[in-house]
Every structure is written in structure tokens, then in C-alpha cells.
Design a protein around this nucleic acid. Structure first.
Lengths: 225, 225
DNA sequence: ACGCAATCGAGAGCACCGCTCTTGACACTC
DNA sequence: GAGTGTCAAGAGCGGTGCTCTCGATTGCGT
């Protein structure tokens, strides 16, 4: 059972993470300063190390929290009762909305890796949550017979078994060809969002909202949804 | 006319940029240190400021050089005499090859924006070079009659006139629908490369080279090439 | 050919960073 | 109440970007 000490400790640790998230939104990941976090909380910089082993460890926590928040947003937006194409559009919009609302956190997840920092394995489960949602939509569509027949000609061995399991599982309507397109569409979605968020569409796209809907509908088309 | 002073000054400035590029390849953009550049050149850190106004300014120079190098690689890889689909594949491979060869520079261009730093307008012309190459392939294909007929139903106003000019110009075989797909394909290409480079495909894609060729062929398909 | 002004390199210094170690105060437990 | 473990605080190390000053050098115009 948690003692009073444990409780206040967990509380302060959460406060540190919150302050770090605020700092992340203000100055970005690379400039995240443990001292500034301590200042914001009114404690000595050295005291923070009682709760957080290192700056990198704090970064890891923010990354996992970010993936979890994004994954939760995607899961919450998905309505399994809706039509596959609609589900796809809605989830994509939710992912984009989260990214626009938390640009720095998104950049931490899908932008350049922080130099001198390699994400530990702990981040993997949280990172796959969005992919799982997207894969489930594909699988449900296949089970409902809403997917066009497979082409038949497909080179095997491109997608790992782990990814295959996520991408709708094994079903007659899903062959390697479909899985490749699914993976491509997945990366395209984040390419789309990254380009918008990082300013590569400035001057080329007029209406961001309409553009995104249009583009994501196109992606649904190549998926067969 | 350039005096002797100007010549040696330009020379030293170039040396600084070279050393910075080397440092960039080793430790990444966020960890790029002006002091380390000075050390490598055997001069005092303060002396560097005689040639470079600030660290951000040095970063801007590296960004422009990076876009130019990538654009040159794409231009050089393109053979206007080849078939459109082949041109597309070859240019995409060249872009990926450059990214794999210069991961840190690629991350500087297409990864998270450096916090507190906004790219000046000078970077725009260099940044568009790859897009110009891709747009030219599309335009040439249209002029050669190698593009499928347009669907006809397209909502206008999504793509700016500037982007329209780059995306093959005006041609009966290129309507807003095609332009939207072109822009989407463009961002998908970099989404693809970013995912590979930033490790998001780890554990899901087995053979990176074959995977990329396969994915890029798929993109060519949605473009009608 | 020479003097002067512009340019340059070096060093010190400021404020900041991540991180470590020591010290002393505190609270909980027995 | 004594003992024990946890905590905040401070000093300190080596690093960063950047500024200022101070001699030394150098090249240009006369």
C-alpha cells in the first residue's frame, strides 16, 4: 500500500512532468532545461534529480506520454460501428487535430530524433497505438467484405509478421499488396501532417482544412476503403 | 573587385561552413557548437564571430546548402529522355539516397524546426528545387499524352497559383484533382523517407530497399505515371 | 615608402546549461 | 525519544552562446 510519502512523491513527479510539458511547448525539446523546470516549480535544480534520474529520462517520459495521448485521441475518435471509410477519415482528422494542438509534442514524436538520445524500447508499445487503430479499421473492413478483391500478384517478405498482425491480421481480402499500401498510407498520413506543421506547404496549399480532408480521402481511396 | 582581404575572408568563412557541416554530420543540428567549430579550426571561439554573425545564421547557411545539395542530386538523377514513370522512380531513389547519406542534414531540412529559429525567406528558392524536378516530370508526361484523362469533378482553390505553375503548369490532362494528388505524393515521398530515417519502420518493414521501390511505384500509380 | 585606419585573433567575462557531491534539515518508524 | 532514511539546498565542474576590450597585424591610399 502506498504510504503518505509515496503519494506526495508521485504528486511532485507529476508536477515536474507537467512543467516539462509546458516548457516543451514554449522552447521545444532540444532546449528543454531541467533547471528551468526547477525554477518554475520553485525548487533547487538539484532537487529535481531526486525525482527524475536525468534529462533524457524526463524526455523519454514525455515521449511515452505523447504517444499515449495521441493514441488515446485516435482510439476515442474511432467509432467501430461506422463505415470503414468514414472511420478512416475521422481518425485521421483526430490525429491531425492532436498534432495541431500539441505541435511541439508532435515534433518530439515524429520530427528529428533528439541528438545523443535514442528512444528506449519502452516507447514502442505506446508508439504503435495509432497504427493499431488504423490497422483495425482495415481488418474490420476486410471482415465486412468491404475491401476490393486482392490483385494476386505480390512479392512476399516486405512486411514483418508483427506488422502483419497489426495490419488487419490474415484475411483473404488482405494480401501483401494491401499491407504495403497500408504501411505507405500510414507514413503518408504523418508525412502530410508533418509537412503542414513544419511549414513545407506554406505558399502551395490555400485552405489547410479542406486540403487535409481531400488528401486523406485520396489515401482512403488507395487503401480501397 | 575583391581585394586580397576579401578573398581570404571568403576562404575562412567557407572553412567555417565546412567544419560546421562536419560537426553537423557527427553530432546533429541541435548540438552544433560554435566553440567546437572554432576548436577544429584552431581559433578562438570569439574569432568565429568575425565571420559568422550567430549560430542561427550558420544554421541558415547549412540549411540552404542542404536544400541545394539535395536539389542538385534530384536534378542530376533526372533524365528527361526517359519514360515518366522511370524518371519518377529514379528521382525518388536519388532523394532517398541523399537522405541516407546525409541523415543529419536531412533531419535539419525535413525534421522538427529548430525551436526559436524561423527559416528566413532566403531558404525558399533552394527548398523548392526537388518539387520543381517532380513537377517537371508530371508536366512532361502530360505534354507527351502519357497521363490518364482527368476525372472532371474537382473542387478548385486548394492549390495556390504558384504551386500550380510548378506542378506541370496548365495542361488539359492536369486539373486540380491531379495537382492535389501530386502534392500528396510529394509529401508522401518525404513521409516515407522520414519514417525510414527516424526509425518508425523498425520492426515493420523487412527489406528497406525493396520496400522503398515498391512504395514509390505505388505512389507513381496514384499519380497516373 | 610610409602612416593610418580597418581588420583581426585572443582572452576575459556574463549568464546559462546538465549533472554530481556534500551538507544539513526534516519526517517517519520503531 | 532515538535512529534512519529522504529531502532541499548549495557549491562546483565542464560545457554552451555571445559580447567586449585590447593589442597585433595588414593592406590601402597617399
Amino acid at each position: 500500500m502506498p504510504t503518505a510519502r509515496d503519494r506526495v512523491r508521485a504528486e511532485i513527479t507529476a508536477e515536474i512532468a507537467d512543467a516539462a510539458r509546458r516548457q516543451l511547448a514554449e522552447v521545444g525539446a532540444a532546449a528543454l532545461s531541467l533547471r528551468a523546470v526547477a525554477r518554475e516549480l520553485g525548487m533547487a535544480s538539484s532537487a529535481v534529480y531526486r525525482y527524475v534520474p536525468s534529462r533524457d529520462d524526463l524526455l523519454t517520459r514525455l515521449i511515452i506520454d505523447g504517444y499515449d495521448a495521441l493514441g488515446a485521441a485516435a482510439e476515442q475518435a474511432d467509432d467501430p460501428a461506422a463505415a470503414p471509410r468514414e472511420r478512416w477519415l475521422v481518425v485521421c482528422r483526430a490525429v491531425r487535430a492532436w498534432a495541431l494542438a500539441h505541435p511541439h509534442e508532435y515534433a518530439l514524436l515524429y520530427g528529428s530524433p533528439v541528438p545523443g538520445y535514442t528512444a528506449p524500447r519502452d516507447t514502442v508499445p505506446a508508439a504503435t497505438r495509432v497504427g493499431v487503430v488504423l490497422g483495425r479499421i482495415l481488418g474490420d473492413a476486410a471482415r465486412a467484405g468491404a475491401l476490393p478483391p486482392v490483385s494476386g500478384a505480390a512479392a512476399a517478405g516486405l512486411v514483418t509478421p508483427e506488422a502483419t498482425a497489426v495490419l488487419g491480421g490474415s484475411h483473404p481480402a488482405i494480401d501483401e499488396d494491401v499491407r504495403v499500401r497500408a504501411l505507405l498510407t500510414w507514413s503518408s498520413l504523418f508525412g502530410l501532417i508533418s509537412f503542414e506543421l513544419f511549414g513545407h506547404f506554406v505558399g502551395t496549399v490555400a485552405d489547410s482544412d479542406r486540403w487535409f480532408d481531400r488528401a486523406v480521402a485520396e489515401l482512403a481511396g488507395t487503401l480501397g476503403l
